[in-house]
Amino acid sequence: MDTSLTDRDTDAGLRIRSAAVLLFARQGYAATSIRDLARAVNLTNAGIYHHVSSKEALLADLMRAGHRGLIDATARLLDGVQQPSDRLALLIASLTAIHARSPLTTRVMDGELRSLTPGSTAHDEIIALRDEYEDHWRRALADGAGQGVFRVADQKLSRLALMSMCTGTSEWYRPDGDSSLEQVCAEFVAIGLAAVRAPARPTASADLSLLPDFPWEPPDA
């Protein structure tokens, strides 16, 4: 096999995914054409189709990889952690950090499910992956409420509110801002635990090195 050809194909595929994430996040999937992608990476339309079968397949691939990276990282972080407060703290910190570090990829993951064809295999797969991840939050809140360490009137609303707080960092966090990512994560953990009225106690801190890095995330976005 000609490894130089393989390397060029890999590089082109990565550049296409980087351009797709940037365009899908900034102007939306529906407003982005194959021609836009081709122009962004200096390829022809045919060159794009050499690497991806369709624009929707490209979107599904990005969302699939993003969700799987999130699920795998979360499983590693929660491995062996029993206390609901510690689990919730790790969930808040990790979701906050992933959205802050990969804002464009996570915006696409969070906002473009509607662009996948309803009832398609890809659509159903992404929903299943999203539910698999959110089950960690459901179980942590249910266990905390069941053990009497959380006091929440509505577990679903509490989960949605806390997750929205975390995912919002993709819109406003900047590495050169006033607060470091570790400070933001710690503050959000404190806010989240206070929201469920968890008793004050030391909580597990998330090892941010375990979180996924998405190679297609534009570094200067």
Rank of each mutant, 00 (worst) to 15 (best):
E187H: 15
K156G: 02
R130K: 10
E171A: 13
H136F: 15
D110A: 12
S120P: 04
D154L: 00
E182H: 14
S179R: 15
I127D: 03
M163L: 15
S164P: 05
D178I: 12
P118K: 08
M109L: 15
M109E: 11
A122G: 03
Q183F: 10
E132D: 14
M109F: 09
G144Q: 03
L157R: 04
T169Q: 07
Y173P: 06
L157E: 12
G146V: 10
D154S: 03
Q147F: 05
M165P: 04
L162R: 01
S158M: 13
H136D: 03
V184M: 14
H136L: 04
T117K: 12
S180F: 11
D110K: 07
D110F: 14
M109V: 15
G168T: 10
S158K: 00
S158R: 01
A186C: 10
D176S: 11
W137Q: 04
Q183R: 14
G168Y: 00
D124R: 12
L141V: 10
T121G: 06
I127K: 07
P118Q: 08
S170R: 15
W172C: 09
G148M: 01
C185F: 12
A122S: 12
D135Y: 01
L162A: 04
I127Q: 08
L113K: 07
Q147H: 08
E171R: 07
K156M: 08
C185G: 04
D178N: 08
S180L: 10
L113G: 04
H136A: 13
R174H: 11
W137C: 04
W172I: 14
M165R: 03
M109S: 05
P175L: 13
V149H: 00
I127N: 05
L157Y: 07
D143V: 01
A140C: 08
L157W: 08
S180N: 11
D176L: 11
A186S: 13
S180A: 12
V152Y: 00
D154Q: 01
E125P: 02
